[in-house]
């Protein structure tokens, strides 16, 4: 009953449209040239935000397409990554790189524990628990009782000793420095998702999504694969969280909030769930639009209209819809040009 029509794409071995390896590597390499191409720091910082949102969206899209689970409260794990990093460097006194790795690992462990409990629940209960978890953590990081660790509603400034790959903490506030990190993370995450999706694990997950009972009767355990997928999605959110802490130099309880979760979900749906490029592009598009409308005070209105338009008119996502419309349009233009001549 709660199956998403969005994600019932035909299940092919290569889930989504993926450029060939050489093209992918070229795109990856070219990405590092972006800061040089964009003079304005403003555009670059939008791209950074967009890729961060895109990484979150990838996690959501992965879980939805492979398992049919709607991780509405992805901000829970995003925030755990961010706050984990901030707390480990401040209270724990760890240097940058170990803190980052440990924060991601802790986030992974946290998502494993949460997943162990909820991955078997009904779809709506699953959604609500992840959402409630986010709100719970938001309040936990706000309450005065825990100010000693979390600094309450004021949030925490991120500061670590030493360097990460040669960069000190304040260097990361420069969009040009941050870009290669978030670009690598986005590409790496995308690659990981693609590998899992096209592996036996991915095929197993999608088959479980189709008919869990039959899978059990065919000899497949159905709990562990889904738990692992959930932990993976949570860990990805944790990576995004650590990156966010680096980019802004600041963490606050709002990271756990409904707005964060909603933006990620909408970015995923906007971009399209069945591909790797989709959620990332959706993230960039959504972040850019949010920035534009947010400055005018219209972020709520924009988000509302965007949701309605995308779901009603473009259920497969912007990327797929454009992918189907554009070739047709281009063909007509080309043909028209020739006719006129």
């Amino acid at each position: 009953m709660t199956e998403l029509t969005i994600s019932s794409q035909p299940l092919r071995a290569g889930s989504g449209r993926l450029p060939r390896v050489a093209l992918a590597l070229a795109v990856f390499a070219l990405g590092f040239a972006v800061p040089a191409l964009l003079d304005q720091g403003y555009l670059l910082s939008i791209l950074n935000k967009g890729l961060l949102l895109g990484i979150l969206a990838l996690g959501i899209a992965f879980l939805m397409h492979q398992c049919g689970l709607v991780l509405f409260g992805i901000a829970s794990f995003y925030g755990v990554g961010a706050y984990g990093f901030a707390i480990l460097t401040e209270t724990g006194g760890l240097p940058g790189l170990p803190a980052a790795i440990l924060a991601i690992a802790l986030c992974g462990a946290f998502s494993f524990l949460v997943g162990a409990v909820i991955v078997r629940t009904r779809p709506l209960a699953f959604m609500m628990i992840t959402l409630a978890l986010g709100e719970l953590l938001r309040h936990l990081t706000s309450i005065p009782e825990l100010r000693g660790i979390t600094h309450g509603v004021d949030g925490m400034i991120v500061n670590f000793q030493g360097t990460i790959l040669g960069y000190e903490v304040f260097d990361f506030l420069d969009p040009a420095v941050f870009w290669p990190f978030v670009w690598t993370a986005a590409c790496g995450t995308g690659l990981m998702m693609w590998l899992v999706a096209n592996s036996m694990v991915g095929r197993t997950l999608r088959a479980i999504k189709e008919n869990e009972e039959r899978m059990r009767f065919c000899g497949f355990g159905t709990y562990l694969p889904r738990l692992l997928a959930f932990s993976l999605a949570g860990s990805i959110a944790g990576i995004a969280g650590v990156l966010q802490a680096l980019a802004s130099g600041f963490v606050s309880p709002e990271l756990f909030g409904l707005v964060t979760s909603t933006n990620a979900l909408l970015a995923a749906i906007t971009g399209g769930l069945a591909s790797i490029a989709g959620p990332v592009l959706g993230g960039v598009a959504f972040a850019a639009a949010l920035d534009e409308f947010g400055a005018l005070g219209y972020s709520q209105l924009f988000t509302g209209i965007a949701v309605v338009v995308v779901i009603v008119a473009m259920p497969r996502g912007l990327v797929v819809t454009l992918g189907t419309i554009l070739p047709g349009l281009l063909a007509r233009f080309a043909g028209k040009g020739r006719d006129d001549a």
């Binding site: 709660t2 998403l4 219209y298 709520q300 988000t303 509302g304 209209i305 949701v307 309605v308 779901i311």
Partner: peptide, 26 residues
């Protein structure tokens, strides 16, 4: 109109409309 769509999609549309209404009030 959205009867044939999945419950999650309809729920998200109602969410969007809620945001629009809230914006209107503000």
């Amino acid at each position: 109109p959205l009867n044939a769509r999945s419950h999650i999609e309809v729920a998200l549309v109602t969410f969007g409309i809620g945001l629009i209404l809230a914006h209107g009030i503000i």
